[in-house]
């Protein structure tokens, strides 16, 4: 199963909201994935197949060397999530 990790600064609000949107998308496209959220500090040492974050945090994930990052300007934009996610799945 693919692991998707959603990240924001404190891992409390924004990432949980994005997680709900990602879960809706994953369900819609019937993608077998485990979605969770956490804070930027913990993300340093975490592993995941796909990462999701708002653009400012996504840039930092990239700096950490994370791959397959979904970067969102509007954190609740399910269409953007779906588009980027299907692109990653297709490779």
């Amino acid at each position: 199963m693919t692991k998707i990790l959603v990240v924001c600064g404190n891992g409390l609000g924004t990432s949980l909201m994005m997680e709900m949107a990602v879960k809706d998308v994953v369900k819609k496209i019937s993608f077998d994935a485990n979605v969770d959220h956490e804070d930027l500090s913990s993300a340093h040492s975490s592993q995941a197949d796909i990462w999701v974050a708002a653009t400012d945090i996504a840039a930092q994930l990239e700096d950490m060397g994370k791959k397959n990052i979904i970067s969102l300007t509007n954190i609740f934009d399910k269409e953007a999530i779906e588009e980027q996610l299907t692109n990653i799945i297709k490779g």
């Binding site: 609000g13 909201m17 709900m20 708002a54 400012d56 300007t73 509007n74 954190i75 609740f76």
Partner: peptide, 26 residues
């Protein structure tokens, strides 16, 4: 929070979500 959202989606369809402040950062 997801339970709250799930229930409110059913009871108040079309309500606007009020989100945490980093939503404006991008």
């Amino acid at each position: 929070v997801p339970a709250f959202k799930g229930i409110s989606d059913k009871l108040v369809p079309g309500a606007k979500p009020a989100l945490d402040c980093p939503m404006v950062f991008p």
